[in-house]
Design a binder for these strands. Structure first.
Ligand SMILES: [Mn+2]
Ligand SMILES: [Mn+2]
Ligand SMILES: [Mn+2]
Ligand SMILES: [Mn+2]
Lengths: 218, 218
DNA sequence: TATAATTTTTAGTCATGTCTAAAAATCATT
DNA sequence: AATGATTTTTAGACATGACTAAAAATTATA
């Protein structure tokens, strides 16, 4: 069994590894993600290495073992299932779930999480469009592209967000942008990368920063 | 905010105070309840005293302040609501919920617990018949008596259990004893305190130990 | 390739929560 | 009231997980 702290490190390393294509994850990157100090990361890395969760050579960064990856996807499965529960059953909005799921993901009970999965009807995505790993840790990859890379005239369905901060999510709510909405690029401004999009028969101008945090399935 | 460990101590002190009618709760009693050592209890008691949760004078035992009682009932509210959730929604049996609720009771989120209460339809009792405090910490007292104190010929409805160990609860399942069942004392054996009871038109002999852990409402 | 900047590790400290062993206080018994 | 038993506290240690400051290694730059 892993402590809450160990689990947070394992998850952070997994997420960094998924979207960074580099072999070893750096101490500093982990420290930044977890808002802690590099020296603390080095300490924890040594422990996780002892426990065969990561492969670690001094100054070379860290890589998850298969066991480590399995552990990580299991925590992510719990996190995302709880997020679905909070939104679907307890009237949380998608910008309120993260903090609570961050706690709930550490509850130890295999029965709990499998029954929760059943109760929720085996959801495939969490409220932010992220895929939910199955109990073996398999996680379906969804082909999706950032809205920012679409060309003028192209369109698709909004299927996810990259940034899950409540500021960003509340902004999307305010603009009427939600998962499942059809978005079409009407105009693309070369100067600042801003887009004019069509949403629900309205036209809307969104900045490049926004377009770089919205995933579209074409 | 309190740590998980602090919360476990607060809850233990509350429970000991409720069913022991003595002013000060002893260090040893707390140690026994939490399966820890008296010296650890003394350390923690000092900290809780600093935080105004308990009143403590050396060698005199410990008493919860109003603030401490409020904190305790809040944890108990969470514990019992989660137990209801597990049984009603996730197909847990009443002997499987305790361990998990012991973890879930420490999740910090006022919205979570209030929404859970709504979702469950404001239950008044947990799966073991124990009352669920409201959000102000008020807890209705249920008049109930141990089956062991009933006299020959008396009867009532089973409304609670004192021991919530899975061994005891599974034993009750096996005998067909459950909350809501009507029980009548047919015969009372003075020698060992065992009872012959009527349950569902069957007669059943139960030991004094069992009768001392079953609550009846007459 | 030497030097500077950055990253990573080490050394030492601290808070929390636990423990054992010993001392001190309280309680029980005669 | 004295003695013995029990309870409680203290003292000192340890594990976990964090921190700061300094040293060491790596990477970037001239
Ligand atoms: Mn977490
Ligand atoms: Mn999510
Ligand atoms: Mn607990
Ligand atoms: Mn209960």
């Amino acid at each position: 069994m892993f402590s809450q702290s160990e689990e947070n490190y394992i998850k952070a390393i997994y997420h960094l590894a998924v979207d960074s294509s580099v072999k070893g994850i750096s101490t500093n990157a982990i420290a930044k993600k977890l808002a802690t100090k590099a020296s603390s990361v080095t300490d924890m890395i040594k422990k996780l290495s002892e426990k065969k969760v990561v492969v670690y050579k001094k100054y070379q960064g860290v890589t998850l073992t298969d066991f480590g990856k399995k552990t990580a996807t299991n925590i992510i499965r719990k996190h995302r299932l709880w997020e679905v529960f909070l939104v679907e059953k307890l009237n949380f909005s998608w910008d309120e779930v993260h903090e609570v799921a961050e706690q709930l993901e550490h509850i130890k009970s295999p029965k709990l999480i499998n029954e929760l999965d059943i109760f929720l009807g085996f959801p495939k995505r969490d409220p932010h469009g992220d895929p939910i790993p199955d109990s073996e840790g398999n996680l379906q990859i969804i082909e999706k592209s950032l809205l920012a890379v679409l060309n003028k005239g192209e369109e698709g369905i909004c299927v996810g967000v990259d940034d899950t901060s409540s500021e960003f999510l509340q902004f999307l709510d305010k603009q009427g942008i939600a998962l499942g909405k059809r978005i079409k690029v009407i105009e693309k401004e070369p100067f600042d990368g801003s887009l004019l999009i069509q949403l629900d028969d309205k036209e809307l101008s969104i900045s490049n920063k926004i377009a770089n945090n919205l995933y579209i399935q074409q």
